[in-house]
Every structure is written in C-alpha cells, then in structure tokens.
Computed example of a mutant assay.
Amino acid sequence: MKKWAVSALVYLLIIVGGYYVYASSYGTESHDENMPVNDNGAKSHEQGHEENNVNHNGDSEVIPSLKVHNGELIITLNDLDGNPVSDLEVNHEKLMHLIVVSTDLKGYKHLHPQMVEPGVFKISHSLPVGEYKAFVDIKPIGKEYETAPIPFMTGEVHNENSLIVDSELTKEAGGHTVKLIPSSLKVNEEIQLTFDLTGNTPEPYLGALGHVVILDQKGKNYIHVHPLAGNEPVFATKFSEPGIYKIWAEFKFNGEVFVYPYVVEIK
C-alpha cells in the first residue's frame, strides 16, 4: 500500500512539473519587449520576414506601412485591428503628404500618393538606389495619429549621415535667393523662422504661402510647419531637444516648386 502511494505521488509530481514547464514556455502572455511587433500590434515570433516596412508608433491608432514594388511606393493604412483606414481629412489640398528623405538627409521629396483602394495609396518614384526614411503625413478622422519614420531601401546602398552646420543661411534655387532668419536657435523656445525672399512673392502652394519640414540629424523627430499668416513667409516652431537639424523650405515661383535646405544647430 505504501509502495502504491509513493508511486502515485511521484506520478502526480511529474504531471504538475510538466504542466509548469509548458506554461512557462508557451503561455499566452509575453513580456519580452525585444520581440518584434506585427501590423496589428501583437507580438510576433517571426523576425526579418515582413514584406512591408512598418511604422510601429505606440501612440497611434493608425499604422502605415510602405512597400517598394515595380517602381512604385505603396502605402497601406490599417487600424489596430488590421482594418483599412481611408477616412482622412483633406490637409492642405491632399489626403496624404509623403515626405521621403535619404538617411544622410541630402535627398528630399514631397510626394502626394493617390488612394487606389480603401486604405491603399500608390505613387510612382524615381528614387536613386539608397537608404531612405518615409514620413506619412495624414489626418485620420476620429483616430489618434503621430507621424514617425518608416525606413526603407531601394537597392543595397547605405548612406552615411554627415551633416555640416551651415555658416550662411542663404540658399539659391531656380534663380531665386532665399535667406533664413531665425529669431533664435535655442532649445525649448518659441522660434520664428522668417524667410527673406529678396523681394519675390511666391505663389500659393497646397493652400499656403509655403511649407517647411524639419528633421533632427537622426531623422526621427519630424516637424511640418505652416506660415503664421497668409501673406508672410514666417513660420513658428519649437525644438524640444538640442542638436543638429535640417530645415527644408518649399516655395513656388512661376508654377514650379523649389526647395531650399538649411542645416542649423539648436543649443
């Protein structure tokens, strides 16, 4: 009788121990923060097999992904449940502004993909082979969204980031000279960016006198600024961290949009 009781106890311990090992290894809750996240925010065990490049911003209820295919940039918008998002507010005459910069911040494109089906936008591109970051600038209706970089590549060439602060903030493009006059270059201050257009008056572009896009040196912090008033090239912004930033100012002259880039240091 004693031998049977000992055998039963050993058997029971084996069952309990086996269950504990199983639960520890394959339980439904995971707290491994290094595990990649898939499109709907769930943890995924598959690494390096995603076809799309995805913006995983935890503060957003809309998740954009980008794919390069047959000379096109394809942007897909999904909510946290994986459903397509197509209910967008028109923002400066467009549903989507796609800002594409090379990782060395030398190349810059301001594109406007068109919706081809619910939640899917496409646009042809002629980007050189290289490494890029895309910023999907949208205003979803009824959903929180924050723009964040989506890295992608065309080919296998990596760009090195080596920004040099401009000693002169005067640039020329398209026969027009534009000078940037910042009210300050200090962190955590409201800063006015005034552009001296040397007597030229730009044409309205996307519902505004001009547009300004700002990125930090690492290409993470995205700022899209519009003029303070309708008839003056004055823009207001604030830098929350010190560092080197690149500013692209866009103005339209004689039916053509020109880009004027500046590199500044915020202290």
Rank of each mutant, 00 (worst) to 15 (best):
E190V: 03
G210D: 05
I191E: 11
T177P: 03
D137M: 05
P233N: 11
G82F: 01
Y19D: 03
S86Y: 15
H125N: 05
A8I: 02
G17N: 03
M96A: 04
L98F: 02
G219P: 08
P227E: 03
K218I: 07
I244P: 13
L9H: 00
T147R: 02
G255S: 08
G207F: 08
N161F: 09
D87E: 10
E29S: 03
Y108F: 15
F135I: 10
Q192T: 10
N91E: 06
K94N: 13
V100I: 09
G155K: 02
Y108D: 14
P233T: 09
S44I: 04
G71D: 13
E172M: 06
E29P: 00
G82R: 04
S162C: 04
G119M: 02
L77D: 12
F121N: 10
G41P: 15
H158G: 00
H97C: 10
S25A: 14
I191Q: 11
V37Y: 04
K186H: 04
A8K: 04
E160W: 00
S60R: 02
P128T: 13
I138N: 11
A208W: 02
L111A: 05
I138V: 14
L80K: 14
E190R: 01
D81Y: 02
Y205F: 15
S126K: 05
K238N: 08
P261S: 14
Y245W: 08
K179R: 15
L66R: 01
K171P: 10
K109T: 04
N159S: 13
E117G: 08
V264S: 10
G119A: 00
S240V: 02
Q192W: 01
P204L: 03
V90I: 15
F195L: 01
I244H: 06
A173Q: 13
L169W: 13
Y145H: 05
E250N: 12
F135N: 10
V129D: 15
Y245G: 09
P204N: 06
L209R: 13
H125S: 07
F135Y: 15
T154A: 07
N221Y: 09
G18N: 14
P149M: 06
V129M: 09
S102G: 15
G219D: 14
L98P: 07
P182N: 00
T237H: 00
E117R: 12
T201M: 09
S183E: 05
K218Y: 09
H49T: 15
I247A: 04
E241C: 00
V213G: 03
N91D: 14
Y145P: 07
P242R: 06
V21E: 12
V129I: 02
S30I: 05
V263I: 15
K122F: 00
N221L: 08
K139G: 03
F121H: 09
V10R: 00
H112G: 14
N38H: 14
S25F: 00
E232T: 12
H158N: 07
I75E: 12
H31P: 01
N200H: 13
S25C: 01
G255P: 05
N161D: 14
Q47A: 14
Y145K: 05
V212P: 01
G243H: 12
L80E: 14
V100T: 08
F195S: 11
Y260T: 13
A134Q: 05
H125R: 09
N159R: 07
E160Y: 04
G243T: 10
M96Q: 07
L88F: 11
S102V: 11
L180A: 03
T237L: 01
E33S: 11
N55C: 15
N200G: 02
G210A: 05
E189G: 00
M96C: 05
G41W: 06
